[in-house]
Design a protein around this nucleic acid. Structure first.
Length: 598
RNA sequence: GGUCCCGUGGUGAAGUCCGGAGUUCACGCCGCCCUGUCAAGGCGGAGGUCGCGGGUUCGAAUCCCGUCGGGACCGCCA
């Protein structure tokens, strides 16, 4: 090594030692006769004292310094630095490589944020900043703990293909042309779902993988076209085995990475209860603010909007009576942005009397009992949503989260884990049919196994989601392992035998050979790391993330291809009859083969 | 596919609503001064197609239309 010590490790005990350091010039303070250089390497920063040496070097140049560790003169220690009691008096300073003028300040001078696009274009400079580098190191800590726990539980780490065919998730696939079979395409996996089930048929019993997944859908702050799952599948298990393993994993990760003690077991809540109390299937339990159901309270009301509604829900906003007009209008605008007509409200005066908003539309005795009915205090505001039950609940659920943020009711440093269980197997489609809430291989609860086909809307599944602070960080299910049950699910989904065969015939074939009862779970590793690190976006925990339009400012990807590449890849080729006969084409879910349409 | 916000020297912002000379602030950069700073300090200086195109106007960073890029959200992502 060309250095003897790491800069951030120097302490009083090193005083008197001759050292060689190598790193980057983070900052320079030149007093003429004496100058100070903050030398940064991966371990931290040490101050180098330079006299009579050439310092004419751009910040962020890479340098090697030799010198002696000295105690700083009395009164000159810097308590903000771990190395602040010492400095290195340089006797040589060698420029290993010069830096060009910087596109943005790497050391956070001025305290201002740098635009994300600029940081991503020079991501390698961005990552020199300790705050950015910290998140990648944290991610590495997380995966190390995960692998340790999975190993202790005798799980087998197995890689599955990235060049494959469509899996049954509902998202669009990324496609890869196949030169050797012009006109044929691989799909990148949306998850290893089918492969891990095949591995259970294969008798691997305990599988896990930290797997890249690909989905060609629009972005969000917590979505990227490629993202990472911790993917787990087990044979001969029931839900409790998944819960126990998950809780062990999470408490170890939180304990090791953050030093936080996560109590187990986690709370559990039925899907229906979560929807009713919080208006979402991933409630944030760091604060109260539960929804109120006023449907029966307003059963006989003269107020048409409430009288006509299937459901009248309400949310009390503490202190909301003092909202200025502007804020009340902003909430209306917020609701319209979510496709609602608005958010009716009433304000409780300090005497507890409701007024404002829709109060004038309500009868005397309705107003009199309102505060007790919704559980409001004087000075609070109550907001109403009336309409179809699910829509009303979801609007209030979203409003609950927004209002909690706006009111400052979301506490820092709390980790509220929750299992959401007993979710429905199916939900209605716009076309009047049914679609899987989870995926088509999710087993029904035993009490719904016989009758789920007769009342698909009532059937509950053996699916489970882990929710943390209002974010879904993982989900999975016990799978169907019996052909008859699987066939009845396909029937409910309106999937013909032919379609089922075309989409995942290879899985059904595998299930003819004694598949074990099995199930599993997958965690969104990027989200987990973002939450652990306090990052605002999963982009911050990905080394080289993409922007919202899917481009990478650093490499410039994606790029057009040349005519030659296009020809070689066989993009425009018609698949040969032989290739076509080799198997059904990669088709998006819900579409039939072109030849079946005729 | 839709809604909203943003785009101004290298960086971050103000200026835009209400048109009047590229104006301002902080950081960075260049030069000079400075022997204990740590966001060092002082003095001086350079640096801008106001994302791009079109329109309105005597005159556009500012108003209008379009477009590109970034971000947030809805749809979508089981």
């Amino acid at each position: 090594m060309i250095r003897t010590h790491e800069a951030g490790t120097l302490r009083r005990s090193d005083i008197g030692t001759s050292v060689a350091l190598a790193g980057w010039v983070a900052r320079r303070r030149d007093h003429g006769g004496v100058a100070f250089v903050d030398l940064r390497d991966g371990s931290g920063i040490a101050q180098v004292v330079v006299r009579d040496l050439d310092l004419s070097v751009q910040l962020e140049s890479c340098v090697r310094v030799t010198g002696t560790v000295r105690e700083r003169p009395a009164g000159n220690a810097n308590p903000d630095l771990p190395t602040g009691e010492v400095d290195v008096v340089a006797d040589s300073l060698e420029v290993l490589s010069r830096a060009a003028p910087l596109p943005f300040p790497v050391a956070d001078a001025g305290g201002h944020e740098v635009g994300e696009e600029v940081r991503l274009k020079w991501r390698y400079l961005d990552l020199r900043r300790p705050a950015a580098a910290r998140l990648l190191r944290l991610r590495s800590d997380v995966t190390r703990v995960i692998r340790a726990v999975m190993d202790e539980n005798r799980f087998v780490d197995i890689e599955t293909p990235y060049l494959t065919r469509s899996t049954p998730e509902g998202a669009r696939d990324f496609l890869v042309p196949v030169r050797l079979q012009p006109g044929c395409w691989y799909a990148l996996p949306q998850s290893p779902q089918l492969f891990k089930q095949l591995l259970m048929v294969a008798g691997m019993e305990r599988y896990y993988q930290i797997a890249r997944c690909f989905r060609d859908e629009d972005f969000r702050a917590d979505r990227q076209p490629e993202f990472t799952q911790l993917d787990i599948e087990m044979s001969f298990l029931d839900e409790e085995d998944v819960y126990a393993l998950t809780e062990q994993l999470i408490s170890r990760v939180w304990g090791t990475v953050l030093g936080v003690d996560v109590p187990t077991p986690f709370r559990r809540m039925a899907y229906a209860e979560a929807m009713t109390r919080y208006g979402t299937d991933k409630p944030d339990l760091r604060y109260g603010l539960e929804l109120a159901d006023l449907t029966s309270y307003f059963a006989g009301t003269e107020f048409r909007i409430f009288a006509a509604a299937e459901h009248v829900g309400a949310l009390v906003v503490p202190g909301g009576a003092s909202y200025p007009r502007k804020q009340l209008d902003a909430w209306q605008e917020w609701a319209r942005g979510r496709g609602a007509k608005g958010l009716a409200y009433a304000l409780f005066s300090t005497a507890g009397v409701p007024g404002g908003g829709i109060a004038k539309n309500l009868a005397e005795q309705e107003l009199r009992g309102l505060r007790a009915a919704v559980g409001a205090e004087p000075g609070d505001a109550v907001f109403f949503a009336a309409g179809p039950r699910r829509e009303s609940l979801e609007l209030l659920g979203a409003f609950r989260a927004a209002a909690a943020r706006e009111r400052g009711l979301v506490p820092d440093g709390r980790w509220e884990f929750l299992w959401v269980v007993d979710s429905p197997m199916f939900e209605p489609t716009d076309e009047g049919g049914w679609t899987s809430v989870h995926h088509p291989f999710t087993a029904p609860k035993p009490e719904h196994e016989a009758g789920f086909a007769d009342a698909p809307g009532q059937a509950l599944s053996r699916a489970y989601d882990v929710v943390l602070n209002g974010t879904e960080i993982g989900g999975g299910s016990i799978r169907i392992h019996r052909a008859g049950v699987q066939q009845r699910v396909f029937d409910v989904l309106g999937l013909s035998r032919q379609d089922a065969e075309a989409k995942f015939g290879f899985l059904l074939e595998a299930f003819r050979y004694g598949p074990p009862p099995h199930g599993g779970i997958a965690f969104g590793l990027d989200r987990v790391c973002a939450l652990l690190g306090g990052a605002e976006s999963i982009r911050d925990v990905i080394a080289f993330p993409k922007t919202a339009s899917g481009s990478d400012p650093l490499t410039g990807a994606p790029t057009p291809i040349t005519a030659g590449q296009r020809r070689d890849a066989g993009i425009d080729a018609t698949p040969s009859a032989r290739a076509h006969a080799g198997g059904p084409p990669n088709l998006p879910a819900g579409e039939t083969r072109p030849d079946e349409k005729r």
